[in-house]
Amino acid sequence: MDQKIAFLQERARAIRRHIITMLGEAGSGHPGGSLSAADIVSVLFFDTMKLDPENPHWPGRDRFVLSKGHAAPVLYAALAEKGYFPQEELLTLRKLGSRLQGHPDMKKLPGVEMSTGSLGQGLSAALGMALGLRLDGGEGAQRVYALLGDGEVQEGQIWEAAMAAGHFKVDNLTAILDYNNLQIDGPVDVVMNVAPLADKWRAFNWHVIEIDGHDIGQILKAIEEAQATKGKPTIIIARTIKGKGVSFMENQVGWHGNAPKPEQVEQALKELA
């Protein structure tokens, strides 16, 4: 177990380094919400999900939907680390002709399961995937994981999807909420308070697990519990720090959507070495 945790921590660190490097090269993009989700994404891609990077459209694979699509760098970093494409390609992020669009584009990049970027829609798509996979696979159906932002859940459509997933008892669907308490205009509880989150999801007939979203052991345990939960979808509400891993970015609203300058890239990479 300790070995597994160490391995996943190292993968998360590698993902964070990629995030910084590609955003520095791109000159624009969203570091804060990418960094806050790195540990969750590391567990999903390097432990939880059944995937075949050699055969990205393998029908038996699990699905990941990055509903908070602006965190595209964390997804691209994981896909590159996993071997879906050469790591050098990360440096094409946001450039003309790149498969690495500013927000994930499933038509361009194998491994991206849903095009996202307009907040509030990914959970519905994940629900549709889970329903469709269950139709064919029944009990042993592939699983679908959707990563949501805490600001994102202000969108009404999230709650339409939450209601429907609870109603249809879609237990092959797991949502993970990146609860970093920051959005663009400030702290989530100041802009538009979303708390109490656990009570809300429970009221929509979801199984709710609350964890520290940077504790690999807790993430692993929560995923296991989600997989074992029958008759209900599960949401993992993961307390996180926006910008996690780069001291000057942590908890800073200004790092939501600004790329680091070369000297900042250098310092960040030193911290993530």
């Binding site: 990914g122 519905s124 994940a126 549709g128 995937m129 469709g132 459509q157 999807a161």
Partner: peptide
């Protein structure tokens, strides 16, 4: 809104 995006997910699988 949820119906249309759920349909998208069904199509994706």
């Amino acid at each position: 809104s949820n119906m249309m995006a759920t349909a998208a997910g069904l199509a994706a699988v």
